[in-house]
Amino acid sequence: MTVPELKIQDLHVSVEGKSIVKGFDLDIKGGEIHALMGPNGTGKSTVASAIMGHPKYEVTAGSVSLDGENLLDMAVDERARAGMFLAMQYPSEVSGVTNADFLRTAINGRRGEGNEIPLMKFIKTLDKKMDLLEMDQAFAERYVNEGFSGGEKKRNEILQLMMLEPKFAILDEIDSGLDIDALKWVAKGVNSMRSENFGCLIITHYQRLLNYIKPDKVHVMMNGHIVKTGGPELALRLEEEGYDGMKAELGIKDDEPVEA
């Protein structure tokens, strides 16, 4: 089996006519974990939403391909079934639908008719993954994200990631609002996914999460594109010097800040 590859080339994205991402390039292969860092309003989350296909985000130029297939031609659900996953910053609530039902429908949607996951196998897998994330069994029967705390929602995103087993995941500020314990569970979940068949892009402001999930590469994004790429040490340096130090070094002036 060949190692999956996500290729983003010269991506430009606008939201409501306003250009936010301006020439974003990134190449991730299975087995790799990349971190995307940068100050607020530089377009990190916009990259994530555009790759997944949120209707509000308009790709004006560039390409995104998964194993050579053009993702941008696909509907949101087709991208998901092709192997993309986005752990969202603000996951939606779906009243009246249990987590378990939702997950089973999503898994079966990927597997296709006639190839549905046997119920017992589903339950066993779900139990196992929830144990690993130290989630109470009751979560399976709670309505999707309804009444969940911020941390519970994030853990639920990771649970979905683990159940759906995509080729690539983008974790959009999965660490925001998490206490140290929740951070560890999230990291544990992501680390359990590590394999040649899985690549991951972690979007974060802080290097804290990267203590638990060691990235292969760290990218710094400013003004709509990547301005610097390095190893894990780059995240540590940012933690010490802040983004202002790097801006000075690279001679970058602030764009007008935009919505992340």
């Binding site: 659900d77 991208r79 996951p91 999503a106 759906l164």
Partner: peptide
């Protein structure tokens, strides 16, 4: 947002809409 969320997990627009409606009348 709800449709995007459900579809990003691989549900078609039809399935996502159904799920929201079923949940509503649950």
């Amino acid at each position: 947002e709800q449709l995007f969320y459900l579809m990003s997990r691989g549900l078609t627009e039809q399935e996502a809409t159904e799920m929201i409606v079923m949940g509503f009348i649950e």
